[in-house]
Amino acid sequence: MDKNLQRIISESSFESDTIREDEGYLHVRVSRVHVLELLLSAKQRFDMETLQLISVVDRIEDAVFQLTWILEDSGGTSVFMISADYPRENCTVPTIGDIWPTAILFERELHEMYGIDFPGNPRQNEDFLLEDWRELPPMRRDFDTLEYSLRTYGERRKRTHTDPREYIADSIDEWDTPVPMKDFER
């Protein structure tokens, strides 16, 4: 594994769990209080120049959002990923827009899609993709897409549907059995 990548965590003052490592690739999980420190040191001391993406997984079962920051070095040869869990309820994550300006856009998207608050991000309340959205943020797993689409768009077009199981049974007269077990409720 890349020595440079290894040093990012070995020279830090706090603990981290390695999720996956490979040639030119390291993915660690840290406590959320250390995220900013690790991101800063990765950029300033270890050449992790580019912020590729910030991703979110809605782990609704654990009541957390798992955020992952994906960084790449200036040569494009190694990738460093930092994951941390944040409570799902009123989720607040510090902005890193002043470290990587591109984060302002990424965080704006996450604010719209998951409702995560990035205090300090000057543009997070501007619409990203959705216009005038007043519902639960749509990428949250508790957002019911079917309910929303039925409520908003209605039965625009009558849906036709045939159940394969019933269609087969009807066509071969399957339930015409000589002695159906009537006491069995099906």
Binding site: T145, L146, R159, T160, H161, T162, P164, Y167
Partner: peptide
């Protein structure tokens, strides 16, 4: 299909 977009038809 989560959105009932697909219906099996004859």
């Amino acid at each position: 299909c989560q959105n009932l977009a697909i219906g099996m038809v004859q």
